[in-house]
């Protein structure tokens, strides 16, 4: 996709959905974490999930919010069924497991929203704006960029292992653990250290050491929608804790 198309894509998105500042999303995530911790009742959790899912829907993540809704329903279903039909240790095990999942579910959905609707450069700019040190931002950017490359490296390594007649599966690992482990770790770590050298040369050439504040193609600032969403969530969490 070239720049023009990307720009058009963004404008297209503006028509149907609304955008939030990454800082707002970070704030909401903190708030949801607090809400889950303080949550007084089951009712409160369900309303919280409903609000989060409708926010996902409004921000244009249709399939994601549907999937999450189904997942939440499934967890509630497992909970109810295990309560009704199981007893003793099994009930305890399943009920505590579903409780565990239910507790982290709102945060997972919120995190998915943050990751799914924020571009990496926007996120970096937002982190820079809340004055997080460059010593954290640079490794974070490199880390996020490097994730897909690990998959690529892994595919090459798997091919090379097959060529040498070492199976990169669990069976191969059980047959010949030491060799398999070495064949995975050594090339991955070697490639990582080599890429670190190349990448640092490249990014110094592109001016990463510039001490001025970084700029971003996307406009990162608070809008009216940010304040509305923040108000609704704050109001619900602190009001709900007392009422529900």
């Amino acid at each position: 996709m070239n720049k023009g198309e990307e720009l058009q894509g963004n404008m297209h998105m503006h028509v149907f959905t609304f955008k939030l500042d990454p800082r707002t999303k970070i704030y909401l995530l903190l708030l949801v974490n607090a809400a889950v911790f303080l949550s007084p009742s089951f009712q409160f959790e369900r309303i919280l999930m409903a609000i989060i899912l409708s926010l996902c829907f409004l921000m244009g993540m249709f399939s994601f919010s549907l999937k999450m809704m189904l997942g939440y329903g499934l967890i509630l279903g497992v909970h109810l069924v295990s309560e009704m039909f199981l007893s003793g240790a099994w009930e305890l095990m399943f009920v505590s497991f579903t409780m565990f999942i239910r507790k982290i579910f709102p945060c997972v959905v919120m995190g998915g929203l943050l990751v799914g609707t924020t571009k990496i450069n926007e996120f970096m700019t937002a982190l820079g704006k809340i004055r997080i040190s460059k010593k954290v931002i640079i490794p974070l950017a490199v880390m996020l960029r490097y994730f897909p490359m690990i998959g690529e490296d892994w595919r090459y390594i798997k091919d090379a292992m097959k060529l040498r007649g070492i199976s990169p599966s669990i069976i191969g690992f059980l047959k010949n653990p030491v060799q398999t482990v070495e064949c995975i770790y050594v090339p991955l770590l070697m490639a990582a250290s080599k890429i670190a050298d190349e990448l640092s040369a490249a990014s110094i050439a592109r001016g990463i050491e510039n001490p001025k504040e970084r700029t971003c193609f996307q406009h990162v600032s608070f809008q009216f929608s940010d304040s509305i969403v923040m108000f609704i969530f704050t109001f619900f969490v602190f009001g709900g804790v007392f009422i529900c």
Binding site: F94, F97, K135, V142, M143, L144, F147, I150, A192, A196
Partner: peptide, 30 residues
């Protein structure tokens, strides 16, 4: 800067290996 980039890359590897190690266990009630 080189150190920061090295730390970033190794953190990515760390995270992926951690995920692989825990993927077997985390979504299982027992």
């Amino acid at each position: 800067i080189k150190d920061l980039i090295t730390v970033g890359i190794f953190s990515a590897l760390f995270f992926i290996f951690m995920m692989i190690g825990s993927a077997l266990f985390a979504p299982n009630p027992v």
